[in-house]
Amino acid sequence: MLGIEDGWVLAGYLLCIAGAILCAVYGVVSWVRGDGAASEAAPPRDGQTGELIQ
């Protein structure tokens, strides 16, 4: 199949494509779903993080 003789290499080739598609679909679904997440955001800084660079 696809000119590749070894099943293991063919599986690796197809897994790359399938994995990227899985990531893309997951990312799009998460993007569409998630606006409420902004409320989870931390304030920009406090305590130790607030020192200005001099």
Binding site: C16, G19, A20, C23, S30, W31, G36, A37, E40
Partner: peptide, 18 residues
């Protein structure tokens, strides 16, 4: 900012690595 931002970034990361 949030975990949701990370999940949204998965798609770009996967396609980029491919």
């Amino acid at each position: 900012r949030s975990r949701q931002d990370l999940k949204s970034a998965v798609g770009i990361g996967g396609v980029f690595v491919l």
